[in-house]
Structures are given as structure tokens and as C-alpha cells.
């Protein structure tokens, strides 16, 4: 008799607990139709420092290969070469990122300011005599740009090596983050945004990220 009582009681107790849950909001999201990140009352921000996809701001990369050395699965392939004898070797340079997502590599007059005000004027000596790093600015030209167009200015260190290849095979990557920790210029980062998380591709080739940009040097 007590056996029956116990059985019924414990089942009912479980029912009560689940019944209480019935009146609470649902915690399940129907991804991808219902995006976790967009639902209002259950907003979940991707935390700062999330280890998503890798990204390299190549203009800051000094090709030290530290990242390729520490990578446990050897998924970073770097190829670099010394400048030819007599060839021009770029000293430190500035990379001016404009607000329309383009950039100019060159040397600006004076030191880059800490904070960019809209009324500032920058004179940029376009560093590349043969090619161009910006679609509208001819090679070797000197241009004046006002501060309201400029997003940020980065000081690039002295270029000792030219980067020919910088590939990261994201299909092999462990997302361990070791490479971003050793990078001395902190140009190799992991995206902590939605695009660092959602990146399915149909073609494996698209997951091999090629960061090398020859227009930066020639």
C-alpha cells in the first residue's frame, strides 16, 4: 500500500515541478529562425574576448611567425621574403583607414593624433610609387584628407620582411587562442562578434583565410 502511495506521490511531485515550469517563459530558441542574439527579453551579448574566427590586420603584422610557431596544429602558413638588394625598404608607415572602408598606406605629416577630430587636416604622402592602395588616389601622389572622413590611423612598424602568404586554415584551427596571445603587435585577433561565430560555408576553400595583401608593399 505504501508502495503505491510512494509511487503516486513521487510522480505527482515531478508533475507539479514541471507544471510550474509551464507558466515560465520558454528558454529554448528556435535557432536560426529565432536568433538568440536578437530576442529582446533574453538578450545575450557575445562577451568581449570571445574566441571566434581569426582575423589579421595585415598592415600591422611584422611577419615574426610567432603565431605559426605556437600553433599546436600548424594551421597558419606564412611565407615572407627579404626585400631585394637595392630595393626600397619601407620605414615605419601610417595606414589611414577611411570611414568608407578603404585605406591609404603612406606617410602623414607629423605624428598621428590620439583622437581624430572632424576639423583636422591630414596630408598623406601616398607611399606606393608603382601601384596604389586606394582606388581614387594615383600612385605616389600627395593628398589632403579632412578628419571627418578618417576612421583611424595606425602606425606601422618598420617593414623588415615582405609578406607573400599568410593563410589560416580555419578547418584545422582549434580556437585555442594561443596565436593571438603571442602576437607582439596584437594584429592577430579573434572576432567577438556575430560574424566570428556564424560562418558556415559550402566550399572548404572559403575557410582557408588568405590575409596577405601584396598592394601593401609593391
Amino acid at each position: 500500500m505504501s508502495n503505491i502511495y510512494n509511487g503516486v506521490y513521487s510522480v505527482l511531485l515531478g508533475m507539479v515541478i514541471t507544471l510550474r515550469q509551464l507558466f515560465k517563459p520558454s528558454v529554448t530558441h528556435q535557432y536560426p529562425y529565432e536568433n538568440d542574439f536578437e530576442i529582446n527579453d533574453n538578450i545575450r551579448e557575445i562577451p568581449v574576448g570571445f574566441r571566434g574566427q581569426l582575423h589579421n590586420r595585415v598592415e600591422d603584422c611584422i611577419v615574426c611567425k610567432k603565431c605559426a610557431q605556437i600553433c599546436p596544429v600548424d594551421c597558419i602558413h606564412i611565407d615572407a621574403r627579404k626585400p631585394e638588394k637595392g630595393g626600397k625598404m619601407w620605414e615605419s608607415m601610417n595606414v589611414v583607414h577611411l570611414k568608407d572602408q578603404t585605406r591609404i598606406v603612406g606617410i602623414i605629416d607629423g605624428k598621428p593624433p590620439k583622437k581624430i577630430e572632424p576639423d583636422m587636416q591630414f596630408t598623406i604622402q601616398h607611399a606606393n610609387p608603382e601601384g596604389t592602395t586606394h582606388p581614387d588616389i594615383p600612385a605616389g601622389a600627395t593628398v589632403k584628407i579632412s578628419g571627418d572622413k578618417v576612421d583611424r590611423i595606425i602606425d606601422r612598424k618598420k617593414v623588415v620582411l615582405f609578406m607573400d602568404q599568410f593563410d589560416i586554415d580555419m578547418t584545422l584551427c582549434l580556437f585555442c587562442g594561443l596565436c593571438t596571445e603571442v602576437c607582439p603587435t596584437e594584429c592577430l585577433t579573434m572576432k567577438d562578434s556575430l560574424e566570428g561565430i556564424e560562418y558556415s560555408e559550402f566550399d572548404r576553400e572559403n575557410l582557408i583565410y588568405k590575409f596577405a595583401d601584396p598592394t601593401l608593399y609593391k
Binding site: G49, F175, E181
Partner: peptide, 22 residues
């Protein structure tokens, strides 16, 4: 939040931990 990963943390390192508290 603590280490940037959900399953494979790689948080505890030889001699300490990789990141301080957010």
C-alpha cells in the same frame, strides 16, 4: 565571459591562468 570559449576552455595554463576576471 571568463575565457571566451564554451567547451574547450584552454584557461588554466602552466603557472597560472590565461585571463583575469572580466
Amino acid at each position: 565571459k571568463l575565457c571566451g570559449a564554451r567547451l574547450t576552455y584552454n584557461y588554466i595554463r602552466v603557472g597560472g591562468v590565461s585571463r583575469d576576471l572580466p
